[in-house]
Every structure is written in C-alpha cells, then in structure tokens.
C-alpha cells in the first residue's frame, strides 16, 4: 500500500459461550443469551453484527454520514445478515463472500479502495452464529451428534472495523489476495485439513511478493484452522516451502476457546466471527499494548455449501493475507 489505510476503531460482539473465552476481556460486548432476545438465531446474528458496527462507529465518534462504503459478509445463505445490516445502516454496500476468510476479504478490499483514492472511509464487518450456522451446514442444534476430534465449533460473534486515511491504529500495509486451492478433501467436518494448503499457498506467495520472511513478523495467525489444521499447516509449509514457523505462529480457532475446559469444541473455533473477533478484538489490543508491532493475518475460508458436499464435490478453499503494522 502506498499510503497505508488505518483501522481507527473496531467493534466486537460475542455470544455467551465465547464470553468464557480466555480472550473474553478483549471483546467489547458479550451477549448474555444465544438469541440476543430475538425470535430466531438468524435475527440474533443480525443483531450481533449490528451491535459490532455501532460499537466501532461509536468508538471512532463517527456516524453513518462519515462512512462512504459498507463491506460485509457472513455465512448464512445469500449473506442475509450483511444485507439486512446494510439496510439498517443505509450505507452504500458491497456484499462479499469468502466463507470464514470474509473478515480479511472485506478489510483488504476496503483498504485497497481507500489506498486507490476511491473512498475515504469504509466500514467492514462479518459475523457467524453457532446455532444458525449449525442448522444450515449440519444438523438441528438439539440433535445428539458426536463431534469428531478434528471437528470445530462455530464461533458466535461479529467483528467490525472502521478504515480510513487519518488517525491512530494498526495500519494495513499489505494485502495478498488468496487463490482457490483444492487438495481433494471432501469431509466438511474436517475443515482444518481442507483449508491448511490454502493458508500455506497464500503465506508463501505473500513472503515471495513482499520479500519478507516469517521472522519479519512478531506474530502470524491463521483464521480458523483449529489445533489440528494448524499442525497440518506447520508440517505442510515446512515440506513445500521449507519454512519453519515456530512459536510466532498461532491460530485464532485454537486461541479462542479453552479446549481443556470445554472438550466439545474439539479442534477449536471456526466461522467468520472467529478470526474477526480474535483479530479485531484481541490482537489489535495486544498491538496497542505494545506486545506486537507487526502481524500477518491469514484468514482461511472453506468455500463449500451443504449441497456441494452432498453431491460429493471436494471442498475448495481460500485464504487472504493482510499485514498490519502499529506505528
């Protein structure tokens, strides 16, 4: 980026279960109830995203008038959560879909449009809701299904980020747009394994393009590979790229839940909200606190639908990388 856009404020809202997270103190709002007082889980997700957007605007002391473009995406069919929120905000709107990589897809797009001089201020948001996603992708939530050890738990949460040209906050220095990769994984419950090669591909291309090395970053995080997917990524990137990621690499899905205390989350968190709340909530605050100066976020997404899976198609995946720097 020639003139790196700045994330001047973020808003994060999470559900009650994520309120038990070891990172909970860095989330702005924690809902007391999975339904957020709404009649359905889909309405609850709409409310989640709305509150995250309002929180980000309130923190930056901006109103709808100050924002040129709203870029959002989510997991529900036809990204209805984003559509309804755009209508609530009354802003010009681009809907994006990148499955769980949407957080960085939206933020990267916003940053590029600002850097290109097309707009001055963009609001980007994404969300996911455990019960709404579960019933769309898997089973009714009350169905007694045993999770596989490599399975993941959809994060109930929404994150919004306000990007502009002037202000204080993490600067967006680089965006590496992902390519679809498909390594023939067909099991939709094994998303960590499906998405790891996409993350590896984007990471290697990012390092080649920017002539940087993993050592140049204080922290490299992937979106929602989970504990198992993160282990695969380490092995795979060592095999194909000769890179040793070491302790500077973490995964949002593995960070968000206490996996010892709540074994039902299996391999860790997933969903659009996972990387959004961890990066916008926790990591940006860690940057402000001076713990990290330069981080690379690689949000990963599995681009399948329940229909494509039932028709025995493979799961193609994507990963978008965004580098942030705190001055």
């Amino acid at each position: 980026m020639a003139t790196p856009p700045i994330v001047i404020a973020t808003g994060t809202t999470v559900g009650p279960f994520e309120g038990q997270s070891p990172l909970a103190k860095d989330f702005d709002l924690i809902a007391g109830d999975l339904t957020l007082g709404q009649a359905s889980f889909e309405l609850a997700e709409r409310e989640l995203m709305n509150s995250a957007c309002l929180k980000a605007m309130q923190k930056a002391k901006r109103t709808e008038k100050d924002i040129d473009l709203f870029i959002a995406g989510d997991l529900l069919n036809q990204i209805i959560t984003s559509g309804f929120n755009a209508s609530l905000l009354g802003l010009p709107f681009f809907g994006v879909y990148g499955a769980c990589s949407t957080s960085m897809a939206g933020l990267g797009l916003g940053a590029m449009l600002i850097d290109g001089g097309f707009i001055g201020t963009a609001l980007t948001a994404t969300s996911s809701h455990y019960s709404a996603a579960e019933r769309q992708y898997r089973y009714p939530t009350e169905y007694g299904n045993q999770r596989r050890p490599y399975g993941q738990w959809t994060v109930t949460g929404a994150g919004a980020a306000l990007l502009t040209t002037q202000g204080k906050g993490p600067r967006v220095t680089h965006v590496t747009v992902g390519k679809m990769t498909d390594f023939g994984v067909k099991d939709p419950l094994n998303m960590g394994a499906a998405m790891a090669p996409a993350a590896a591909d984007t990471m290697l291309r990012h390092f080649a393009d920017t002539k940087r090395m993993p050592e140049d970053y204080d922290l490299i995080v992937t979106g929602d590979l989970g504990e198992f997917g993160a282990e695969i990524l380490r092995r795979w990137i060592k095999e194909t790229g000769g890179l040793e990621l070491g302790i500077r690499y973490k995964d949002c899905g593995a960070m968000i839940y206490d996996r010892v205390k709540y074994p039902q989350v299996a391999s860790g968190g997933s969903g659009c909200g996972c990387s959004a709340v961890v990066v916008f909530g926790h990591l940006f605050r860690e940057m402000e606190r001076g713990r990290y100066r330069r981080i690379l976020v690689i949000a990963t997404g599995a681009m399948h639908s329940p229909t494509s899976v039932m028709q025995k198609q493979t799961i193609p995946c994507i990963a978008h990388a965004v580098a942030f720097e705190f001055p």
Binding site: P149, Y150, F183, G184, V185, N190, A193, P197, F228, E231, I232, R235, W236, E239, T240, S267
Partner: peptide
Amino acid sequence: EQARYQQLIKEMEP
C-alpha cells in the same frame, strides 16, 4: 502433491 497431502492428513488425523 495432492496425493502426498492426503497421505499427510491421514497420518496426522487425531
């Protein structure tokens, strides 16, 4: 490459 990857994830599956 795909075949090798499939083998890797099979090996590593918890």
